[in-house]
């Protein structure tokens, strides 16, 4: 199940290792062609900013991580062989960069249970009644960092609890517990909103 989700996440870009991130294009970026690198940045940055924001909550910090992640991506581009999804590969770099940031700031330390958070106003909800990613982002941002991280890694990125436990240095059971509590809180908030 985990592998299936992971594959879905990795192939979400649909580039299949090529597509808009063709080999020649990646090769140009790898060779340091600044124009190509900028094009790649323009393609990826808007998506990756959402990813970063999911992990850190605020816009300014998300852009700091975005910048750091892109520098890492371009300098590590030679380790991408082209065999898999480029966007999936890139996504991992940004997830790792975000995790590094959270660790540096000691944000992943267990802060106890989820506190009641400042909540959405009714005008945050889209006219159609559907919650947009912005509303959902606000909800996620309202979660404590360790809950937010586990939720993001499991639900959106598709990591297993074992992987999350290894990456965050926590027990697998703790990962499950935090995910469960995050889900419950999000459900509660969504219910209240609707």
């Amino acid at each position: 199940m985990h592998l299936l989700i992971r594959t879905l996440v990795d192939d979400r870009s649909g580039d299949g290792g090529g597509g808009q991130y063709g080999e020649a294009f990646i090769a140009e970026c790898r060779d340091g062609d600044r124009a190509a690198q900028k094009r790649l940045f323009e393609l990826l940055a808007p998506k990756m900013k959402v990813l970063c924001k999911r992990y850190v909550g605020d816009d300014a910090t998300a852009e700091d991580i975005l910048q750091e992640g892109f520098i890492t991506l371009f300098t590590r581009l030679d380790s991408y062989s082209g065999a898999g999804s480029f966007e999936g590969w890139a996504r991992k770099i940004f997830v790792n960069t975000a995790l590094m940031h959270l660790r540096r700031n000691d944000a992943l330390r267990d802060s106890g249970d989820i506190e009641e958070a400042v909540w959405l106003r009714s005008d945050d909800v889209s006219p159609s009644g559907q919650l947009s990613h912005k509303e959902l982002l606000k909800m996620i941002a309202a979660l404590p960092a360790e809950y937010r991280t586990v939720f993001n890694m499991y639900v959106i990125e598709g990591y297993s609890h074992q992987e999350i436990a290894d990456a965050l240095g926590i027990r697998e059971a703790t990962s499950r517990s935090k995910l469960q509590r995050a889900r419950l809180k999000l459900q509660e908030w969504i219910k209240n909103l609707s």
Binding site: R12, K38, Q67, L131, H133, I156, R183, L186, I190
Partner: peptide
């Protein structure tokens, strides 16, 4: 359903990126 809601919402979500980010990337590179 909850997972699906979040997953679909973020699948193709994008946000505007400040030009300062590319400037920073460019400097860093």
């Amino acid at each position: 359903n909850l997972d699906l809601l979040f997953r679909e919402a973020f699948a193709d979500a994008t946000e505007e990126v400040s030009p300062a980010v590319w400037a920073g990337v460019s400097r860093g590179l």
